[in-house]
């Protein structure tokens, strides 16, 4: 898998918001590759910059700008494209299912018109062909074909989310970015939709960048998981290692694992991580997690750690990297 060309490649990406009284950097020097056909989970709490990263990858930032780095999709630098080129390229190669399906659909247009718009913006096809394709898409997400004539407000939250997913796979893209696609839905519907997503993904062979703050969900769904903290990627690891007690992890990841309650215990106990992420306006010189870390050492406060292959994962932590080095006597 590693030998392949990545479908999405973020290199040294930093993003700052310009709308407040002073610019605020929310994504810091992120490197991340997504390979064809894989599901890569991106975990982080609100404000960690994960959604911003998704918008950056789609070149959809508003009131924010990429201050460094590059974004390549299928080998092409999307920030070098002209607008019309970008418009044609975007949904065909990479699409995005929005976090708030509630608001992602135009309230005054029928579902059918909104799907047709997607198709017609990229292909030349007759209305009949378009409707036929739209019905296929709806069937794929298990919606009744007559949903075409319905307006968004007539649909339930789950149905709306399915419509958004249908639109996102309309042009058979190579990568679908899913930004918390099940937030706001009840647990049962969440599960059903996730199963459907996985099933469609297996059939259509696209890659998914799955963004969520639900640690357990991502760790079971994704083949690889990237963990984001305060605008930085602190670890990239195989999903399976999150369930392997012997695997090495970033202390933040360890904290997340400990925070998941275990059914096997007599009592479901979850241990939180004390403290808060740093204020992005007053970002520490060293490791952003240092203030909350139980392993913190002096070097952590002086120098920012970098992502390095540590054990079987990429981890950005001085302490874990040192331990690993000692263990193997390097």
């Amino acid at each position: 898998m590693i030998e392949q060309e990545p479908i999405l490649s973020l290199k040294d990406v930093s993003v700052q918001y310009d709308s407040g009284p002073e610019p605020v950097t929310v994504v810091r020097n992120v490197f991340l590759d997504v390979y064809p056909q894989e599901i890569l989970g991106l975990i982080g709490e609100s404000g960690s910059g994960k959604s911003t990263l998704a918008y950056t990858a789609m070149r959809l930032l508003k009131h924010a700008s990429m201050t460094s780095g590059s974004v390549r999709i299928a080998g092409r630098d999307i920030y070098a494209m002209k607008h019309e080129e970008l418009r044609q390229f975007r949904w065909a190669e990479v699409s995005m299912a929005f976090q708030t399906a509630m608001n992602a659909l135009n309230p005054v247009m029928t579902v059918g018109e909104q799907i047709l718009d997607t198709l017609k913006s990229h292909q030349t096809l007759t209305r009949e062909e378009g409707i036929e394709r739209a019905q296929e898409l709806l069937q794929l997400v298990r919606l009744n074909p007559d949903t075409l004539q319905r307006y968004p407000h007539e649909l339930s939250g789950g149905m709306r989310q399915r419509v958004v997913i249908a639109i996102s796979i309309a042009l058979s893209p190579k990568l679908v970015i899913m930004d918390e696609p099940t937030t706001g839905l009840d647990v049962v519907i969440q599960r059903t939709i996730l199963d459907e997503i996985v099933e469609i993904q297996r059939r259509q062979h696209f890659a998914i960048l799955f963004i969520s703050h639900d640690f357990q969900l991502v760790s079971t769904l994704a083949q690889r998981v990237a963990i984001m903290y305060a605008g930085k990627i602190v670890e990239v690891t195989a999903g399976a290692t999150l369930h392997d007690p012997t695997a090495l992890h970033h202390p933040y990841t360890e904290g997340l694992i400990r925070a998941v309650p275990r059914l096997s215990d007599d009592q479901a106990t979850a241990i939180g991580i004390p403290g808060n992420p740093p204020d992005p306006r007053d970002f520490p010189k060293g490791c952003a997690y240092a203030d909350r870390c139980s392993l913190v050492q002096r070097v952590c406060r002086e120098q920012p750690p970098e992502l390095r292959m540590t054990g079987s994962s990429l981890i950005a932590c001085h302490v874990v990297q040192q331990r690993e080095a000692k263990q193997y006597g390097i």
Binding site: I43, G44, E45, S46, V187, Q190, H213, D214, F215, Q216, L217, L256, A259, V260, P261, L263, A268, A270, G272, I273, P274, G275, N276
Partner: peptide, 14 residues
Amino acid sequence: MTQSSDVDQVLLPT
């Protein structure tokens, strides 16, 4: 279960 593995919730003890 699913709710308590929510990163936001476990990270906001204070």
